[in-house]
Simulated assay, not measured.
Amino acid sequence: MKITLPGSKETLPVGKILCIGRNYAKHAAEMQSDVPGEPMVFLKPSTAIVRSGGVVVLPKQSKDVHHEVELVAVIGKGGRNIPEDEALHHVSAYAAGLDMTARDIQSKAKANRHPWSVAKGFDTFAPLGPLTPADQVGDPQQMEVSVTVNEETRQNGRTADMIFSVAYLVHYTSTIFTLEPGDLIYTGTPDGVGPVEDGDVAEARVSGCAPLRVRMSRELD
């Protein structure tokens, strides 16, 4: 999967998909989990990307796939150990995204103290909306994020309620991974996550960005 960064004609392969868990206190509460003291980072493969207008495949291994709407920060300028006060200069675009989660598989993994990679990493489990240049969006901590399923609002939150800001997430992840152009940071989801079924249509919105619209389709046995 490739993306074109704003202001560039060059297409880049999607790099690392860095996802942040429990970055909204109410979501942590609904998952019966503690609020983390530092960002909880997990990764998805680039094959999890599907663009707006595409199809999210509900895998046969799971009977309980959930939507999680997120603001996505797109890295345009790489770096390591990026200072927090310079971090947003490394973000070239923002987008609406969905972190699809096989909740039944995740719950089993948690119970066994296993990683979440399978629950989060199926093909098409990281829908990504159109990219909007960062300078057209403004303050990433003053955005509304929401998702509807079949035109019914399921999640509605504000990035002001993030535990860790976008700038801090760019800084923090760069102390672990060298960030590169084409990397994506899925910044966490507000409360209200829930299941999707075969044929459902989800529309994710982030204020200032174009909407993301995808259809769910059950994988056949």
Rank of each mutant, 00 (worst) to 15 (best):
Val206Glu: 00
Glu197Cys: 02
Ala204His: 01
Val206Ile: 08
Thr189Asn: 10
Pro190His: 04
Asp191Ala: 15
Gly192Asp: 06
Arg218Gly: 05
Gly188Arg: 01
Tyr186His: 00
Gly188Gln: 15
Asp191Ile: 05
Thr189Asp: 12
Asp200Met: 10
Pro211Tyr: 03
Pro195Phe: 02
Glu203Asp: 00
Arg205Val: 10
Glu219Ala: 13
Gly194Met: 06
Gly188Glu: 05
Thr187His: 04
Ala210Glu: 15
Val196Lys: 05
Ala204Cys: 15
Val193Phe: 08
Gly192His: 08
Cys209Phe: 08
Glu197Ala: 13
Ser207Met: 07
Leu184His: 10
Pro190Cys: 11
Pro195His: 03
Val201Tyr: 04
Thr189Cys: 04
Arg218Asp: 04
Asp198Ile: 03
Pro195Ala: 10
Gly208His: 08
Asp198Gln: 13
Arg215Ser: 14
Ala210His: 05
Val193Met: 14
Gly192Ser: 07
Pro190Gln: 06
Arg205Gln: 08
Gly192Leu: 08
Tyr186Thr: 01
Val193Cys: 13
Met216Ser: 13
Glu219Cys: 01
Tyr186Met: 09
Pro211His: 12
Ala202Lys: 03
Arg213Asn: 05
Ser217Gln: 15
Val201Thr: 11
Ile185Thr: 01
Arg205Trp: 06
Arg213Lys: 14
Tyr186Phe: 15
Arg213Thr: 14
Cys209Asn: 00
Pro195Arg: 09
Leu212Phe: 01
Pro195Ile: 02
Thr187Cys: 14
Leu184Asn: 14
Ala202Gln: 10
Val214Ala: 13
Arg213Ala: 12
